[in-house]
């Protein structure tokens, strides 16, 4: 806004009314609901009758609820493991894709494909593949003579499946971010490193990685927020199961709200989700100064 304070021609400035429709619309369908969630979290509501005020009941229940603790733990675990497993892969592939190898364009285009499908479509595909009797899982168990192919039936297996599918789905997106970041690195830095006698590996650690610092932050924030709000695939692939092995916070919220119809308590879970999600992203933003970059999209 700095520029505009210099001189101002008479005509051509829109009034504040121009902002109203969007603000009102956004307020009604996004901002006000946040307030309503807060209110509902203090009520008992089954969706049929009117909500009745129950004070802090839901919140004290939430605090002591093993299911909720489990869900928060799983969400944080999913977030951390997503980051740990995806980042090295997409960093490497993104940097590679930024280069000029033969076939690079074709391969990048193929890598990109999972990003074109909706989560629902992908979850259905993976559900077919993981079917222990009819899917690829059955074949793999046959080849390696495993005694069962029950990947989605074991707690760790189902969790690993969610972790893998989310990675498979979003890796291309993060690859693109790193590809974009790597392309911004000035060639002169590499030339200088070459003159110093640095090999590929040293160049990667001493030039590429430090230069991608902002890109790593961008990708990390997006990964964290994505993992904390992962839902569609969990619903279709595991339904939070077996037991509650994959019942992460958004799924727990859905199940409590739209399966058990305990909408008051589900609102408390939702409010907790907002607190955890915004808290985490604000923390990351503070720690890394991401907000300053955001406005200029530097590093993307």
């Amino acid at each position: 806004m700095k520029r505009e304070t210099i001189r101002s021609p008479r005509a051509g400035r829109p009034g504040i009314a121009w902002a109203l429709p969007a603000v009102l619309f956004f307020f009604l369908f996004a901002a006000a609901p946040m307030g309503i969630v807060g209110y509902l979290s203090f009520t008992d509501w089954d969706g049929l009758s009117d909500p009745s005020w129950t004070g802090l009941d839901n919140w004290s229940r939430l605090w002591n609820d093993d299911g909720m603790r489990n869900a928060i733990w799983l969400s944080l675990l999913l977030t951390a493991l997503s980051w740990l497993t995806q980042t090295p892969v997409v960093l490497l592939l993104g940097v590679w894709a930024a280069g000029r190898q033969r076939n690079r364009a074709v391969l990048s285009a193929i890598f990109f494909l999972p990003l074109l499908a909706s989560s629902v479509a992908l979850a259905l595909l993976w559900r077919t593949i993981f079917d222990p009797n009819l899917g690829l899982a059955a074949d793999i168990a046959d080849w390696f003579d495993l005694d069962n192919a029950d990947l989605l039936g074991s707690s760790t297996g189902a969790f690993a499946a969610i972790l893998f599918v989310s990675g498979w789905q979003f890796a291309p997106f993060h690859m693109l971010i790193y590809q974009g970041g790597a392309r911004q690195i000035p060639q002169s830095l590499y030339d200088a490193a070459s003159i110093d006698g640095a090999g590929t590996v040293r160049q990667f650690f001493h030039v590429t990685l430090p230069q991608l610092r902002n890109t790593i932050v961008t990708s990390t924030v997006l990964m964290v927020v994505g993992a904390l709000t992962y839902f569609d695939v969990v619903l279709i692939l595991t339904r939070g199961g077996p037991g509650d092995a994959t019942a992460i916070v958004p799924y727990l919220m859905y199940e409590t709200g739209f399966r058990a119809f305990d909408l008051g308590y589900a609102s408390a879970v939702a409010a907790a989700l907002v607190i955890v999600a915004t808290g985490t992203s604000l923390l990351l933003v503070r720690l890394t100064g991401f907000n300053r970059m955001r406005s200029t999209r530097e590093g993307m």
């Binding site: 222990p132 009797n133 009819l134 005694d147 029950d150 989605l152 039936g153 074991s154 199961g241």
Partner: peptide
């Protein structure tokens, strides 16, 4: 059997 936990009925598995 060993696989029952991920067999589904609604898809006729």
């Amino acid at each position: 059997g060993n696989n029952f936990r991920s067999v589904s009925y609604t898809t006729d598995g």
